[in-house]
Design a protein around this nucleic acid. Structure first.
Length: 680
RNA sequence: GGCGCGAUAGCUCAGCUGGUUAGAGCGCAUGAUUCAUAAUCAUGAGGUCCCCAGUUCAAUCCUGGGUCGCGCUACCA
């Protein structure tokens, strides 16, 4: 059914170099990708595993500014931490490079220039915030102000970190530049857009018709975007950190990080294979697979393919297996809140237990929905699965062989029916493993590998060689031979998942790493072969280790709530009495109230201001129902410039008190007043 | 509000094409066992397959409606 490819180009999402890598990244992307790659390599497939740090974009420049260092310093630091941690964790990239490299800058610039020369972009001018003091345009992240949703100070132009709302810069109240602190002005700037709408037709066919096999979350997300109609997407930004736009008159502009980053896959391949990279990216016999998290779906399934298609001769991904998100102890993982298990810290705190984390994160990977990582589950899976099932079986076989045969593989005599039955299971397990792996079902695959160890335990329990040792050593020899062959097969089956343990197991068996094709053979260890020193494959995780981690998280939580306590906004700049006098605030009565259709928060109110009867729209539906409002007397700023909201003109603003958590309540006169009484 | 994804045993999850006695691992109970890191093996208890309607000979699965959770998106002068 599926096409056979000559080579496999596997990419894993480029980690963003403004922080270290955590368990969410691993479970979502790097562990499944690494398993897949190792599986392909064991089959002697021609495979390249490409990754690297994504080092451009605004958050990195902000972090640099906060720390008083250069953006290059920031990415140098995190690139180092990430690269080192991946390597220690056994993620087997063929190359882990970075987008600040010379090769990448040239590749990305050339890529852009070709599309530019061929008229693949549209140029558009628009008004954007400009900082006159610092003489530069301000990216969304560089504009701070009061969040219009929760009232938090210091919300960014694209997002409020306090309440998590997505914002656009002109929504911010009292916007100011994060660079100079001055009030930004609107100024015209030119940018290049990739007209995704022009690519919609072939994308629709390519994804919706030709790739129905993609995971439902990926397919559904793409369909949703396509059905909504694609819009041109800006590919440049006004910023001084990134790949400069290679066009005359584009000073101070760089490629948008989302245009730049996926080209990193190409650049890193070029760096790895300067002479033959084109075969990997342009030959139809290459299977390209992008492993990503669900936040990247649209870029890898729609934007990047459109870029590749626009460029012309590139192949498109065969599949984009995207995972959902991993939570930690019931809460969303968050870099800024330090709610995470960081890979580099894990590696220090759990030395020689790389595979435990690999096992747990694969067994509980968020393949179909968000999953939760708990330390208790980590401990249980280690102690009652890795130790009790896999480690224990290997240990039993090894110890029995030491005891009865001085550590030499005993000869296999004639097999009885039960032996045959057990051995016949191995190829079945292998087949199920292959089916799962080739359809990116890693959780299921791992479980299947574990079944091989369970088979071993059952075989020993059923045949009871320790009893037969008193009467029939020939039979004991056969049983242990078979048990050891199962051990050797475990080394093959687990190599993609637990490479460190597979290597350790091979050391214990005193044998070389095997190919995938050896899986299922029952003569992997010849009789008389001397085993290595028995050692324990896995160590127990004690309660203390778990408690230590839980305490660490608990402390993080305390630290977070402590810093969140002072929520009262500081006093604003002084105003003159004249300025205050310009505000025309009146007591008014609500005559009618109704929900604005298709919104969550809006009420449309008809009010009697004493001056007139007018309509205002207010975002209070979360706190007040229309029935609550009718007949109420409230305070309204009536000379605020009218503004259209959802097509309705709002002529004024209801005065509300806003609490720390964004909760709002009405300000009402303490006794009934005439409509139109002024407030001063 | 729109869109996408999900809801199955105490917990974590399978169930891929309507028909199965609805499954696995962990946990729990009972028994067996002692080679093994108190590990293993067997047996068992445990289910309103989120709710309501419909299609069908037959629905956990398909359709429509609803509830809850997560994500994207719109609105808060």
């Amino acid at each position: 059914m599926s096409k056979t490819f000559k080579r496999h180009l596997i990419t894993a999402a480029l980690p963003y170099a403004n922080g270290p890598v955590h368990i969410g990244h691993l479970a979502g992307v790097y562990i499944p990708a690494d398993i897949y790659v190792r599986y392909l390599r064991m089959q002697n497939k021609d495979v390249k595993f490409i990754c690297g740090s994504d080092e451009h974009g605004v958050p990195i420049t902000i972090k640099a500014r906060q720390l008083g260092v250069s953006p290059q310093d920031v990415v140098d630091k995190y690139h180092g931490i990430i690269k080192d941690a991946f390597s220690r964790f056994g993620i087997s990239f063929d190359i882990y490079s970075r987008t600040s490299s010379k090769t990448h800058h040239k590749t990305a610039a050339d890529f852009f220039r070709k599309l530019y020369d061929e008229g693949q972009f549209i140029e558009k001018s628009s008004e954007q915030y400009y900082d006159e003091e610092a003489q530069q345009f301000l990216a969304d992240r560089y504009i701070v102000g009061t969040c219009p949703k929760c009232g938090a100070e210091n919300a960014y132009g694209d997002q409020c970190e306090k309440c998590g709302s997505t914002l656009s810069p002109n929504e911010l109240i009292n916007p100011r530049s994060a660079i100079s602190g001055s009030k930004p002005v609107m100024r015209e700037t030119k940018h290049w857009y990739l007209p995704l709408d022009q690519h919609e037709e072939w994308l629709r066919k390519w994804i919706l018709e030709d790739h129905k096999e993609w995971k439902v979350n990926v397919y559904g997300q793409c369909k949703s975007w396509l059905d909504g109609g694609l819009q041109p997407r800006a590919v440049s930004r006004d910023l001084d950190w990134g790949v400069p736009v290679p066009v005359e008159g584009a000073e101070g502009k760089v490629l948008y990080v989302w245009f730049d980053a996926p080209i990193g896959y190409i650049s890193n391949t070029i760096e790895l294979l300067p002479n033959e990279w084109q075969t990997w990216w342009k030959d139809e016999n290459t299977e390209m697979v992008h492993f990503i998290g669900k936040d990247n779906i649209v870029f890898h399934c729609i934007v990047f393919p459109a870029m590749l298609k626009a460029h012309g001769d590139y192949i498109l991904p065969e599949n984009v297996p995207a995972n959902e998100f991993l939570n930690l102890e019931g809460d969303k993982i968050s870099t800024s809140r330090n709610w995470a298990v960081w890979l580099h810290e894990y590696l220090d705190e759990f030395p020689n237990q790389e595979d435990v984390l690999r096992y747990v994160l694969c067994a509980n990977a968020p393949e179909t929905k968000d999953n939760d990582f708990t330390w208790k589950d980590f401990q249980t899976r280690n102690n009652s699965e890795l130790v009790a099932v896999f480690g224990n079986f290997v240990n039993r076989a090894a110890v029995l062989t030491q005891k009865y045969f001085e550590g030499k593989v005993p000869a296999c005599a004639e097999l009885n029916d039960y032996d045959k039955e057990v051995l016949a299971e191995i190829p079945l397990i292998k087949q199920r493993l292959e089916e799962s792996l080739s359809s990116y079902r890693f959780r299921e695959a791992l479980k299947e590998a574990m079944n091989l160890a369970r088979l071993g335990n059952k075989y020993l329990a059923d045949t009871e060689p320790w009893k037969l040792a008193k009467t029939d050593m020939g039979r004991v020899a056969t049983i242990l031979n078979i048990s050891l062959q199962i051990c050797a097969n475990l080394g093959v089956a687990f190599e993609p998942f637990l490479p460190f343990s597979a290597a350790k197991l091979n050391r214990m068996l005193n044998t070389e790493a095997k190919r995938w094709s050896d899986f299922g053979r029952t003569d992997l260890l010849s009789s008389g072969h001397l085993l290595g020193e028995p050692e324990l494959l896995f160590a127990k995780v004690e309660d203390e280790a778990i408690e230590k981690q839980l305490k660490k998280l608990h402390d993080t939580k305390l630290a977070n709530t402590a810093t969140q306590k002072p929520v009262v906004e500081p006093q604003k700049a002084s105003v003159t009495f004249d300025e205050f006098g310009k505000m025309d605030i009146r007591t008014v009565t609500v005559l009618e109230a109704e929900r604005v259709p298709k919104t969550d928060k809006l009420l449309k109110l008809k009010i009697d201001t004493g001056v007139d009867v007018r309509t205002i729209v207010s975002g209070i539906a979360e706190y007040y129902s229309p029935e609550d409002m009718v007949g109420k007397q409230v305070c309204v700023l009536i000379n605020l410039e009218p503004r259209k909201i959802k097509g309705i003109e709002s002529q004024g603003m209801i005065m509300m008190a806003k609490g720390a958590d964004g909760k709002m309540c009405l300000i009402q006169p303490s006794e009934g007043m005439v409509n139109g009484a002024t407030i001063s």
